[in-house]
Design a binder for these strands. Sequence first.
RNA 1: GGAGAGAUGGCUGAGUGGUCGAAAGCGUCGGUUUUGAAAACCGAUGUGGGGGUAACCCCACCGGGGGUUCGAAUCCCUCUCUCUCCGCCA
Length: 423
Amino acid sequence: MLDLKRIRENPEEIKKVLLKRMDSVDFSELLAFDQKRRELILKVEALKANRNQVSSEIPRLKAAGVDVQSQLDQMKLVSMEIKSLDDEWVQLESKIRLLLEALPNLPAEDVLAGGKENNKTVRDWGSRPIFDFTPKNHVDLATDLGLIDYRRGAQLGGNGFWIYRGKGALLEWALLNFFVEEHLSDGYEMILPPHILNEECGYVSGQFPKFKEDVFYIESEQEGRQFLLPTSETALINLHRNEILAEESLPRKYFSYTPCYRKEAGSYRAQERGMIRGHQFNKVELFQFTRPEDSEKAMEEMIQKGERLVQKLGLHYRLVKLAAQDCSAAMGKTFDIELWIPSMNEYKEVSSSSNAYDYQARRGEIRMRRKESKKIEYIHSLNASGLATSRLFPAILEQFQRKNGSVVVPEVLRKWMHQEILE
RNA sequence: GGAGAGAUGGCUGAGUGGUCGAAAGCGUCGGUUUUGAAAACCGAUGUGGGGGUAACCCCACCGGGGGUUCGAAUCCCUCUCUCUCCGCCA
């Protein structure tokens, strides 16, 4: 959520920044509501001050034996007026909130305007493998090697689900183990959150209301609306919801492993069969709460952590800086790590590192207290995949396949796999 | 699933209709004292919103929401969470 005060004071400047990612920006309704709201506050608070004053005099008058009936009658009218003005105020407040929460984050200064076409490759690592045979795609490889059971996955869960079997399950688990070990050694705290979250979590992350269509809702009479998390970012940002953290306790560095559950309705393309886009995939997520002045540096650290994982696996990738429109709404800046998928002849995202600045913190009231001045400020929040396996698994199979249909296991995974070749 | 108890400031914990934004203790910060520290003593110590050039003033907040009342931490309804007991348990 953006700071209403900033919009009030610099509407033109904010509008200019937002136009990097929006087709049009119009604050006139928002500002009119804000103006009206402040007039209303002035009026209703004067009435409340009056009521408080008279009410505190009543017991004294009573004690002195004065008849207070006229005051009571008068205050009853005042109270009724306060009630109706309060209602008006609440309605106005929620209208403002609705307009405000619909606005995406401000793109960072160095982020280019426009959509995907303005994404820029920052650097790449490794090179596209050259095969002296006709390479298979990951679906055939996974099936032929008995790693993934697509048919029975659909039998159990429907289209878009698969089953990891035997060595395939082991490979998946080895990847997760590898990530966990790396993040622990970098001093991140491991978190295993609930997979079922309440509405408030989706709201704070900035994913709601926009992505409500894309999550699986759990209907429950007692708990109200809950949903399966689409990414553990949704859980992690809410870890410190409504908290004031000590400045000395920052940065807080967390990582979590969860499956991610997504409807992905209507987004299938024939090319994206197999594991590229499924309703449930595994991801390890990195998350940091930092002081405002530290978030840029933290972002760099998290990007490099993602890159290091892919490098250690030996996979060719590129790092892409997203243009404003391609960043998700809550984020002011995003870098993606994209893996080369030979059969698709394109790069697919395996990690997304974003700085939300104070956008999520404002939605979740996540703040910190300065050690020296005792002042309270919003923290910055950052997230990065570290990593998602659903793109990694196909990339490993396809990039490391051999002529006889076997696949070489990346060296860093062998201690969990107990084998060098999948065949 | 049933029955009961509870939720108050950074923490412990008083307060059951009228200067209660809230006693007391602890903690934290500042000061006095001390060679230094401790102890003792003195003082300060929540957040948000609105007005004002400012000094400062006002409003709201005692788990969330609603109600009763001139007036609610206190009474009523409701939701959430915590604890105790019983039942159930792939």
